[in-house]
Structure formats: structure tokens, C-alpha cells
Design a protein around this nucleic acid. Structure first.
Lengths: 340, 340
DNA sequence: CTGTTAGCGCCTTCAA
DNA sequence: TTGAAGGCGCTAACAG
């Protein structure tokens, strides 16, 4: 900000105008009890009169505390993540923290850069959902060495002694598959995600184990792996139609399930009668549009709140031991739409 | 960040280790040409060896420049906005700026607080899409007085000599309505938004004028005003069914159009044969799901890029005169879905 | 309750 | 090409 010095009012300007010392002004502006309410009053008045604007850079430099937490998220456009962010902001604001949101776009390179700038800006802590291309965590170390705290959310991750919060993907997957089986499905396809990520590996395992429990054969060809792109659903739907005898879909991929359903419908398939579908899906629009879809309701907002709370705890109370919280989900069957 | 001093490596540590002065180190780390490449080399090596991490707080304080721009957005979960943000980040990153994203959640109170923290953190510039409850702009003044630059995007706004970028809402609306009329609609309902916001006022006017041009009567009861909440569409759809003779909907509200369409379909209405629909809608999911919807395609990503470019221009070149850019849209008729 | 003093880590004249 | 010195705006001892 190229600023003429005359425009920057500092505590010294206030002090000078009032013939007192700048340290008193500082105390007053921080509402310290060690200033008489009378002078506090005078100082605040003069401050607004002169149009004083606190310079946090200076104060943060001095105190070595920014009251800011960084959030690294694959992409904010995914509804699940924007809800998590809301939860984070909610809690953070209440505790007096600012939040900086950064998108990695699933790229390790961008994640590294983000870490650097968050570190350079000395954020007090970082909440991160690692990108799907992140396989080692070297880029997190410098920040930890610097004394920062990191909490992983959504995509679980065991690293140093950082806490993490995730949902019980295995169990969720198991339940979803079980639900389909109990409703009579015999040939269930699984829309999976990148197997490099534990999350998707766990989900696949839940699917596999549920099949096993009910004596259904596991068929690798039934696992359609997606890179989480927009149009995978349609491709998958076509494959399903080719296969011919599929009667169930368990999708661990938000958007894929939706577009698959749409495509299948357009081809005259009756959902869920011909093919039943269960998917992860926190998108409010699609829930309005596809009332027949059974969805796995992930606690997004709550996850944000918990992650934020945990991180702030770590920041303010370094002794706290790392925790690994695993949240359960619930299956929500949207048989009836929200239209009443 | 409560840090033991021993962990914070500074330029002085590097200087001491090399028996040179910290100012030389500073120059080297900033890649100044006024340092021999030999010492530069030594310094960089020692820096990585010691695990030096630049403290931007200090440097920003000193230079009075943060290389950071703040973005205020009503909510990131709306697809239009997250695309705008991507555009902003794209351009900003290339120009060497960091981006801080803040959500106002359409609340003036939150907007005020955000302005304060962005100001306190001395961001170099701010991109803002004002909340729908923002009627005056007093909270922006202190930042401008401090020498900051502001650019308005999406929701146009004439204030001091700030630039703004928006789409031609009037024209878009006119075209949309005209499209319906030319396709034989006689009784066209308009889903409008808060009339306090110029944007929605302009959109309504476009609708009104298009009706006028084609000699159709304007009926105030046909304007269904929404507060941009999720479920308005269903309420509106019910009203339409009550009215009985509606054959067209022009919606200036993303989600309302979608849920209305869904509800109408569930009641046996044929879209677009019985009722034709044109709406603003940048949501990729709904475009997959409702292929029959005619949508007004807003240049979201481009808007972000342009806004960012303009702001950075203002920041780096204060003489730049304020501009008001107005982008045109195009009607996209999604008769055929994306499924090929 | 208020003033004095001394930096936080970095950058930038000004000299050499 | 490098060093010395001072200060960005604020806060935190320590005195009084």
C-alpha cells in the first residue's frame, strides 16, 4: 500500500495530541485495566477523531502472534468443503481468530506454495485437507519446526504428532453397501476415488467387506475409479448399461453419482427401482433435484467446528496431546423430497 | 505463534554465521543486484542450512506493502462466486499477490468486521461484492483514506472513484425475457431478488421493458421477490400453479429456478413445453441434471480475472483512473444435455 | 496509574 | 560491493 506518511495515524500521533506517552495509548487501545477509564475515554475519542487504524502487522510482529489460522482446502466449490469452512469460521471468529482460506486445487505444488506463504505470514495454526497428490509431508515440517500447529481434517493423515479429524469412511461405506444388499441388490458397482488417498482406499474396503459378509462375490471390474472430475458419472453410467445386469450403485464420489443417475434416467432406467443408488453427497441443490437418492450425510459443518476447536486448543495450550477423532455418519434416504 | 526464540532463525543469525552484515543478507534474500553472486550463493546456502523462514510481518511492516489483496464475497458456496475467486487467484498469483477470501454471508455487520481486519492487516487492495444488506458505504471510507484501493465486482456500485465490474444485468434480463416472448410465452413470471440491490432492480427493469416492447401487460403479481434463500423456488412454483395460466418463467435467482423446475416436474408439468424457463445459473451440477433449462451464462471466471487485473493496476499505478466495466452475457440453451 | 526504554525482524538510506 | 545506523508501529518489562 503506497501511502503518504501523513495518512497513517499511529499511536504516537494520538499520544502527542494528548500529551501522554504512546505506551499508555497502546494499553488503552488494548483495553488494559492498567489505564484509568478517564484517559481511556480521552484516548478512544482522539483515536476516532484522528481516524486511527490499528496496524496489526506491527503488533503481530511484536507479540509473535497473529490470531490467524490458515485453512488449506482442495477446492471451495465442493459443497462439503464450503460447509466445513463455515464451521471453521464460526468457531474461529468466536475465539477471536481470523481465517485465511487457500485452495490447493488438488495440486501438491500449490500446496507447497501455500504452506510457504502461510508460514511467512506466521499464522498461528493450519487446518489442512491434503491434496490428492500429496504423498509425503516434507513441506509441512518447516512450519512445525517453527512452532506452528497443524490439524488434518477430512482426509486422515498420520504425521508427527498432529491431530486429525475425519469421518469413519470404512464404516460409512460398509453401511451404504449393506443398505443396498438388504434391499435386494446382487450386483453392486462402486464408484471409487484415487486409491492413493487413504480415504478412498478405506471406502473401497468397506464396500468389499460388506459384500464378503453377505456372501456376494467381489468383482474388480465393478470398481470404477474416478479422478473426481465432473463428467465421470456419465462415463460410468454408460459402462453400467453395457454390463447390463447391475442393480445397485454405491458411489464415494459426490458429483459422479448425480450425473450418473441423470444419465441413467434419460435412458429410461428407473431409479431406484431398476438400479438403487447410495452416494456421498452434501450438495443442497442435488438433494432438491434428486429426491430419490439415498445419501450418506457427512457432518461437514460439525467437522469444521471440531477441527477449529482442536486447533485453537493446540495453539493456546501447547501441552495438548494429539488426537485422532473419527466421526460417524448417517444414511439419509431422501425418498420424499423436501417439498411439502 | 508461541515460539521459543531459538527456533526463529533471522537474517542476523545468517549474518553472524557468515561474518557479514545482516543488510547484505537482506539484499541477497531479495535477490538484489547489489550483492556479488558469490556471497549471494553462500548466503542462500546458509539460509537453507539453518532452516531460515522469512518473516513477512517484519518485511511488510518495513516496506508498507503486503502483496496481498482481500476478496469479500457474499458466500463461497455459490458456484458463481467460487468461479470468480478462481479467476481472481489466477491473476493475482501471477502478479505475485496473495489472496485472502472473506465471506460476508450477506450481512453488513460481518462486512464491517471484515473491512476492519483487512485494513488492520494492511492488504494492498480489496475486491468486494457488497452484501445485499449494504446500503451505504461508510465502512469503506477509512480504508480508502488509508490509501487502499477498492474494486467492486458483480454487484455494481458507484462510490468515490472506485472501479467496478459487473455484467449488463439489464440487457441480460431483457434478452432472457425477449427469448421467452419470441417462443410464444404470454404470461411470464419473474423470480426477482432484493430490490435494494441495484443488480436485481436492473434485472427487473429489463424484464419490464421487454414486456413493454412486445406489448405485453406488466403485472406486479408476476414478480416473485426472493431473499435468495434455498427453498424459495418451491414456494414460487406453488404460486405459479395456483395462478394457473403461466407459460414462462424468467428467474434472476440461481437456485430458485432449479427447485421450481423440479417441483413443477414432480407435479406433472412439462418443462419447457408447458412452461418455459430461463434463469441465471452457473452451477455445473444443475446443468447436468436439468438439461432442458435455458440459462444465462455469466462470465464468472473472466470477471474474476478482470477485477483482479484492474485492482492490481490501481495498486501499482495509483494514477489509473476509475473504470466501470460492464460485461455482456450470452443465452445458452441447454436443449441437449452434455451427454454425448 | 503512567512514563521510560528497548526491541520484534526486516529494509534502506548513507557512507565507505 | 558491503557495513553502519536508524526506524517501520507496536508492546512489554521495569520503574516510578
Amino acid at each position: 500500500m503506497s501511502i503518504k506518511k501523513t495518512e497513517q495515524i499511529t499511536i504516537h500521533d494520538i499520544a502527542r495530541a494528548l500529551n501522554i506517552d504512546s505506551s499508555t495509548v497502546s494499553r488503552a487501545l488494548n483495553d488494559s485495566p492498567r489505564v484509568s477509564s478517564k484517559t481511556k475515554q480521552r484516548i478512544l475519542e482522539k483515536a476516532t477523531e484522528l481516524g486511527y487504524q490499528r496496524n496489526s502487522l506491527a503488533s503481530n510482529l511484536r507479540t509473535n502472534k497473529t490470531n490467524t489460522i490458515g485453512v488449506i482446502v482442495p477446492r471451495i466449490s465442493r459443497n462439503f468443503f464450503s460447509s466445513v469452512i463455515s464451521g471453521i469460521e464460526d468457531t474461529a471468529q468466536e475465539a477471536g481468530y481470523n481465517v485465511i482460506i487457500c485452495q490447493s486445487f488438488e495440486s501438491l505444488e500449490r500446496e507447497k506454495k501455500i504452506m510457504e506463504t502461510l508460514m511467512a505470514n506466521r499464522v498461528d495454526g493450519i487446518l489442512i485437507s491434503i491434496s490428492m497428490h500429496t504423498v509425503n509431508y516434507d513441506h509441512l515440517k518447516p512450519y512445525l519446526n517453527l512452532g506452528g500447529s497443524i490439524v488434518f481434517y477430512d482426509r486422515p493423515c498420520h504425521f508427527e504428532n498432529c491431530s486429525s479429524i475425519s469421518i469413519n469412511d470404512y464404516k460409512a461405506s460398509f453401511q451404504a453397501t449393506e443398505h443396498l444388499i438388504q434391499n435386494g441388490c446382487k450386483n453392486i458397482v462402486h464408484f471409487s476415488g484415487p486409491q492413493l488417498i487413504d480415504l478412498y482406499k478405506n471406502r473401497k474396503q468397506g464396500y468389499v467387506d460388506a459384500l464378503k459378509k453377505y456372501g456376494l462375490e467381489f468383482n474388480e471390474a465393478y470398481c470404477l475409479e474416478s479422478k473426481l472430475s465432473e463428467e465421470d458419472g456419465v462415463i460410468f453410467a454408460k459402462k453400467i448399461l453395457e454390463m447390463g445386469h447391475i442393480d445397485g450403485i454405491y458411489s464415494s464420489n459426490d458429483t459422479a453419482a448425480i450425473s450418473a443417475v441423470q444419465y441413467l434416467k434419460s435412458q429410461g432406467v428407473n431409479i431406484p427401482k431398476d438400479i438403487a443408488v447410495v452416494g456421498f453427497n452434501n450438495d443442497p441443490i442435488s438433494s432438491v433435484i434428486e429426491p430419490g437418492l439415498t445419501t450418506i450425510n457427512q457432518p461437514d459443518f460439525e467437522m469444521g467446528k471440531m477441527a477449529s476447536t482442536l486447533l485453537i486448543n493446540h495453539i493456546e495450550n501447547k501441552k495438548t496431546k494429539p488426537e485422532s477423532k473419527v466421526l460417524d455418519i448417517e444414511l439419509v434416504i431422501r425418498n420424499s423430497s423436501k417439498h411439502n
